[in-house]
């Protein structure tokens, strides 16, 4: 099918984009990479009256250090993130996860900000953001604020972004020493949305006990799901094989409430949480012991 008619704007600055957004209100949609929005417009599931194309906003396309943290502009293509040496060095979890997003042809257009704002429960990037305690920097016409990721994802395809706000920048904080990381997922075919995806970030203390654990899953809830119970079980413990398996088991039993759909049953997804959860935790622990950073 073809999209319904709309009015098209291509602002040159973020200020101009914010002005247009305020002016046109809820009838307007922001167009980033278009890899989620345009299919829904083609099928007329979305029929915005006004489209504000963010693709001319060079100020939102950058990957740069900010002290020990890393800043990525919202309009940075997923493919640029994948190829960035700085991302590989400072955010290897993100580096490991991006190739799982669709296909290269999709990542050539799809943006980091678009995926986060879209908040698909099956998507990789929201999981990484939650695991890495990202801060999401957003602006409206008058103000700027930064939202801790724990408050950002609020439900199915829903975020804390206000109707007149644009996500401008993603900040990944520095990670402490003795921190390891891992991302993995299971999909029917390479490039398909994950049946279950998982990210782990583990920080060990001097005695080899878990000081901090972040375990996050995709496709098992309304958004990315942080496994609180699994983390609580591991913190303060030596993460040996049995402890890691038990924590992933706790995640499967208590942290997630997976859906049944045509792709997989809830029971199968729960089993995947156990298996992939164990895998990413074990890998993260191993990397933490070898002194990697996430």
């Amino acid at each position: 099918m073809k999209p319904a008619p709309f009015e098209y704007y291509r602002p040159e600055t973020v200020d101009e984009a914010l002005g247009l957004l305020a002016e046109h209100g809820s009838g307007a949609k922001l167009l980033a990479g278009g890899q989620s929005l345009v299919p829904t417009m083609n099928f007329r599931l979305a029929q915005p009256a006004v489209l504000i194309d963010l693709n001319a906003l060079a100020e939102l396309e950058h990957i740069e250090p900010d002290g020990d943290a890393l800043r990525i502009g919202a309009m940075t293509r997923q493919r640029q993130v994948e190829r960035s040496a700085l991302v590989a060095e400072r955010a290897p979890l993100l580096h490991e996860a991006v190739p799982f997003i669709g296909h290269p042809q999709i990542r050539n257009r799809g943006t980091i900000g678009g995926s986060i704002a879209h908040a698909d429960p099956a998507a990789e990037l929201p999981v990484v953001m939650l695991a890495r305690r990202a801060r999401l920097h957003v602006r409206n016409r008058r103000d700027a604020r930064s939202i801790p990721v724990d408050e950002f994802f609020t439900g199915l395809f829903a975020t804390a972004l206000g109707p007149e706000e644009i996500l401008v920048d993603i900040e990944l904080p520095a990670v402490p020493p003795s921190t390891g990381w891992a991302f993995d997922e299971v999909a029917r075919r390479h490039g398909d949305f994950a049946l279950v995806g998982a990210a782990a970030v583990v920080t060990l203390d001097d005695s080899g006990r878990c000081r901090d654990v972040r375990l996050v899953f995709s496709s098992v809830g309304d958004g990315p799901v942080l496994a609180h119970e699994a983390a609580r079980q591991l913190e303060g413990e030596i993460p040996d094989d049995a402890a890691v398996r038990a924590a992933a088991g706790a995640a499967a039993e208590r942290d997630v409430d997976p859906p049944s759909d045509i792709h997989a049953s809830a029971a199968y997804r729960r089993q995947l949480v156990r298996v992939i959860g164990t895998r990413v935790l074990a890998r993260a622990v191993e990397r933490a012991r070898n002194g990697s950073v996430s």
């Binding site: 278009g34 890899q35 345009v38 099928f43 693709n55 296909h103 042809q105 999709i106 050539n108 257009r109």
Partner: peptide, 27 residues
């Protein structure tokens, strides 16, 4: 398919393979 899945519409945009069904000509 016009939703980015089949790949039949792939073209090179400034050298990168992209789906032409997920871009507007104005872009």
């Amino acid at each position: 398919c016009e939703h980015g899945v089949c790949g039949a519409c792939t073209v090179l945009l400034d050298g990168d393979a992209v789906r032409s069904c997920l871009l507007f000509a104005v872009q």
